[in-house]
Design a binder for these strands. Sequence first.
DNA 1: CCAGGTCAAGGGAGT
DNA 2: ACTCCCTTGACCTGG
Length: 313
Amino acid sequence: MEDIMLNLGYACINTELSKEKITTNRTMIRKTFDQKGITYASELALQNVKDLKTIIAWNAKNNIHFYRMSSDMFPWATEYRMEELPDFEQIEEAMFQAGLLASQNNMRLTMHPGPFNKLCSPNEDVVVGTIKDLEVHGRIMDLLCLPKSPYAKINIHVGGAYNDKPMALVNFCKNFDRLSDSVKTRLTVENDDKDSLYSTKELFNGVFKQIGIPIVHDQHHHTLCTGGLSQQDAMELALQTWGDVKPVIHYSQSRCVEHNEAKTKPQAHSDSYWTAVDTFGHDVDVMLEAKFKEQALFKMRELLAFNECIAAK
DNA sequence: CCAGGTCAAGGGAGT
DNA sequence: ACTCCCTTGACCTGG
């Protein structure tokens, strides 16, 4: 049963472990960073990295083999070089051990840098800041000894439209060349959740055809920005971009439907799931985005198992 | 100890 | 011009 189950993943927080203060999100505000500096950043990062290993072990125990790591593991990481952290040697060792444990358990680890990354921006300062942040992500994955491939993807959105999508897409592709191999080999792009930004089809033409990086197809986003394609057609278009690497899709359900609150945006994610993800028969890894995290993943397992039960009859 | 206000980044959208 | 939101709430302060 387990081996025919879809490979499901969840993002960043483990709600069960966070009750015991096991988390990889320890950070600080600017004022504290100014006061305490990289000594404190180092302490937080070391604790985060140690807990990452605990989360990986927990995942393995629960037969979860896909996990998105937090971008907050290293507070203010763009403000210093990792080697400058007083605990760097310990951090390096802990990262190596965490990556090893993931690899031994065949666990796919990925990242999703924040919405402030705008590789397409016409503003050079914004691009420089984006490159800096992406390089931090690449470095983290290198320290974990993860593959230089979209198997260990660093997934971002194109980022902006500026009333001139062709210009923005050209910028994105041009600036891609300024990244190191650590980032280039892992970078993927995800479709957006509003028509003013980028559908899977637009990414296929504007990014994949130009620089060949894979597309992460988010099914929920697709319903809000279809580009004129059906769910299945758009997803299959995205799957073509992955080559030998197993593709990733994102799945979430609408908070509106779940909560029936008027002011909830259609983009918002639900707490949990009530409909099983449909992969249209394709072998893909599914990153689940729901507030209840690993608990929602367990719910999804039940939904999938129930469907298999029905199908078997 | 806790509730409530506050908190890096860019851009889009709503008020 | 201002505020909220985004892949993710966590931090900090005053009581």
